[in-house]
């Protein structure tokens, strides 16, 4: 079928946006074990910072960098000023989930109060398209693909080629042991929040660039799919999240091609449930049961 090749291309674009977000989400969760449901709102607020920059005549690519920086700082502050005090006062996994839900509402309504309820768009290059192996990509789509590949390669190098990456993996596997082995876990946790926030910011901008017109709720609708990709890959495993994003990206786009488009999200979850029934630890990582939060 002539549409199969283009659908592979569109699946890669969807998977790219999803991978940026899912890896950001799972990197932080892997190290801290805090299920941060405000992640999508960090994406939203950062993407609106990019909008603010862009609306002053500055390139959206510069806006994306500013959004990444903003997301990193916001995430770090969220941990230091909100989650950490709660953890110190004895709040644990489920309590923190409720805190993160509350935070998501606060951020979303805060952004809404500033921006208003309308729809917005970036001033970005439109109309340019390139044929790559028979697939017609827009300039924006190719850029998103490239950003995702570079970001994933950077995460891979960080985790495998640096002392910080090894420390992060050690904290993710067993933080108590890592602490006993001299790993500065508090600093590693801070860096995990910074990285997660930066990826959230970049993912937010790529998502908003791809949807053309966006509002304060655009990222919120995406959170469930992000979590699905992270779980599918094995919670806390960055490589698993990349793989999970690919699987869900392809599943949703191909279901839109061969089945009714209305079922595309449902199909992603059918796959998630089936995979978890067969392999509860996710497609890659060791199952993260009985984990405890890290400050």
């Amino acid at each position: 079928m002539s549409l199969i090749l283009p659908t592979i291309g569109f699946s890669l674009i969807s998977a790219s946006i999803l991978a940026l977000a899912a890896v950001g989400f799972t990197l932080q969760f892997g190290v801290t074990n805090i299920l941060n449901l405000a992640f999508a709102e960090v994406m939203t607020s950062s993407a609106f910072v990019a909008y603010w920059v862009n609306s002053r005549g500055i390139s959206i690519w510069i806006g994306m960098l500013v959004a990444g920086l903003f997301g990193a700082i916001l995430s770090l502050l969220i941990n230091r000023w909100l989650y950490r005090p709660f953890i110190r006062s004895g709040t644990r996994l489920f309590g923190l989930i409720i805190v993160s839900m509350g935070l998501a509402l606060i951020i979303q309504n805060g952004v809404l109060a500033i921006t208003g309820p309308g729809f917005f768009t970036y001033d970005q290059p439109h109309g340019l398209a390139f044929d790559v192996a028979g697939i017609r990509f827009t300039y924006t789509e190719l850029a998103i693909l490239l950003i995702a590949v570079v970001a994933m390669a950077a995460v891979h190098l960080l985790l495998t080629r640096t002392r910080l990456g090894k420390a992060m993996r050690a904290c993710s596997a067993d933080s108590a042991l890592a602490r006993c082995s001299g790993v500065p876990t508090a600093r590693v946790v801070d860096i995990a929040w910074l990285l997660s926030g930066a990826l959230a910011g970049i993912a937010g901008v790529t998502l908003f660039m791809n949807t053309t017109a966006f509002s304060v709720t655009t990222s919120g609708d995406f959170l469930v799919v992000i979590i699905a990709a992270a779980i599918l890959g094995g919670v806390g495993d960055a490589y698993g999240a990349m793989l999970g994003a690919l699987i869900i990206g392809f599943a949703t786009e191909f279901s839109a091609l061969f089945l009714n488009s209305a079922y595309k999200t449902a199909i992603a979850f059918v796959i998630l449930v089936v995979v978890l029934l067969i392999r509860p630890q996710g497609v890659r990582a060791a199952f993260a049961a009985a984990r405890e939060v890290q400050t």
């Binding site: 002539s2 549409l3 283009p6 659908t7 569109f10 699946s11 674009i13 969807s14 946006i17 789509e141 998502l207 791809n210 949807t211 709720t217 655009t218 609708d221 995406f222 949703t252 786009e253 191909f254 839109a256 091609l257 009714n260 488009s261 209305a262 079922y263 595309k264 999200t265």
Partner: peptide, 20 residues
């Protein structure tokens, strides 16, 4: 007759299907 899931980040596959 496309029934599209609301608020998706992309409808490129649906668009390609429609244009075909």
């Amino acid at each position: 007759a496309l029934s599209i899931t609301p608020n998706q980040p992309s409808y490129r596959t649906e668009v390609a299907k429609l244009l075909a």
